[in-house]
Amino acid sequence: MREAMDPWTFVVASYVIGVGATAAMVAWSLLSMKRAEKRREQARKR
């Protein structure tokens, strides 16, 4: 009897980590962009 590891667990985990990290980076970029736009508008009002 041969006991082999199932590679699909690692494949799915790597996709979950990759997609999750990409979504986190997009959210972080959007929040940073919103803060920068808000600071720019406040600087223009002065």
Rank of each mutant, 00 (worst) to 15 (best):
L30M: 15
Q42W: 04
R35F: 02
R2L: 11
V19I: 14
M1K: 11
V26C: 08
V26P: 10
S29N: 14
T9K: 11
M33S: 14
A24W: 08
M33F: 11
K34P: 02
P7H: 05
K38V: 00
A36G: 01
E37V: 08
Y15H: 08
R35C: 00
K38Q: 08
W8I: 15
A24V: 05
R2N: 13
V12D: 12
V26G: 05
L31S: 15
M33A: 15
M5S: 15
V19W: 03
S14R: 10
A24H: 02
A23R: 02
R44N: 07
M5D: 14
P7A: 08
R39F: 11
M1E: 11
L30G: 15
E37Y: 10
Y15L: 10
A27R: 15
A4K: 09
A27F: 14
A13P: 03
M33C: 09
Q42H: 03
T22F: 07
R40G: 02
V11K: 06
L30W: 12
Q42N: 08
S14E: 06
R2I: 08
V11F: 04
V11S: 02
V19C: 06
M25A: 15
L30A: 14
T9L: 07
T9P: 03
P7D: 08
M25R: 04
R39N: 15
V16S: 06
E41R: 15
S32Y: 04
V11M: 05
W8R: 15
R40F: 06
P7W: 03
M5W: 01
R46K: 07
P7K: 02
E3H: 07
R39H: 12
M25T: 10
E3Y: 06
A24T: 06
A23G: 06
A21H: 01
K34G: 09
M25C: 12
R35L: 10
M1N: 10
Y15I: 05
R39C: 09
V19A: 09
E41M: 14
R2G: 09
R40I: 06
W28N: 14
D6Q: 04
S32A: 13
W28I: 07
A23N: 06
A36V: 03
M33T: 13
A13D: 08
E3L: 11
R2T: 07
M33E: 13
T9N: 10
A43S: 01
A24E: 01
A21N: 00
A21F: 04
